[in-house]
Amino acid sequence: MIINHPLLGPRDGAEFTCLGDASLINRPDWQSTDADEQFYEYLYLRDNPAGMHRELWYHEYGDRSWLVVTRDTLTHDITKVELAVDVARREGRGK
């Protein structure tokens, strides 16, 4: 698998580790009244789709950046790679 890193260009998939669904960016608000329910769903439940999947990859043997990779779980085709920090900012998270 080749991951086209937005800063470094095409890199071998073996340099990365996968954390899982990109929804893990959206950590719930710990002060909300139903925080326990939200954290249960956030931490344990997954969409687990057969098809397009947005997921977090970490460039462990590289520049240590977090990426959001859009990948087809049926074919392993990667259609989009973004820096996770850009995605998080766009979704109103982080600074």
Partner: peptide, 15 residues
Amino acid sequence: GRVMAKAGMRLPIET
């Protein structure tokens, strides 16, 4: 995951 999604369920499972 994809079968139980047809019943509207999300599971604590990744494939």
